[in-house]
Amino acid sequence: MPKVKLHRSSPRLDMTPMVDLAFLLVTFFMLTTKFRPEATITVDEPSTQTSIQRADKNLFQIIIGKDGRVFFDVDGKFTRQHMIENIAERYKISFTPQQIENFSAGGQIGVPISQLGNWLMLKSDAKKDPKVSIGIPIDSANNELKDWLLMARYANGELRYSIKGDRDANYKVVKKVIDDLQDEAIRVNNFILITNMKDDGKKPASK
């Protein structure tokens, strides 16, 4: 009598579908990820217990550092390109195509307009030096933030304005920024404070 042949199944697994799926996801995430340009100024935001979450599209951020330096950042390549062209016209200065390209690519801007052209050609490490990136002037005599806000308004009417301040930033600077936002020409009375979520396990009261 012939022996019953034991059927041995191969220990190999067909991994093809898994690989397909993995690469599909990799492709998806690679295409949807937009790398954020490296922050020129680091800010430690205050924590709150209540907060809302919204899509951070069309956001104009005013960044206030611990030392009172003011930066801004705005989404949208097209918006940014419009802004720098209008600023160049208003301040009667010209930028090279490379400088305009660097500005439009994104990132935080924190330098007076007179130095902007050279500043845009710097590497991101060099920009981190507080002596290089001295912040945007917001004195009443020379208020460039107001001009940037105005240009942003012209360039994109759907922008939302937000303040991202360091927890130890002095209120006087914050007050000046809010006054600029509420200026007659700009009229932003409804804005957003960017915060951290307090990690105390409480359910946030959404609003």
Binding site: F29, R187, N189, N190, L193, I194, T195
Partner: peptide, 19 residues
């Protein structure tokens, strides 16, 4: 890519001031 995308949305607080 999952790690770098999921946690980047900021928290916000909205305030409205009188005109």
């Amino acid at each position: 890519f999952i790690m770098t995308t999921a946690f980047s949305r900021p928290h916000m607080m909205e305030i409205v001031l009188p005109d």
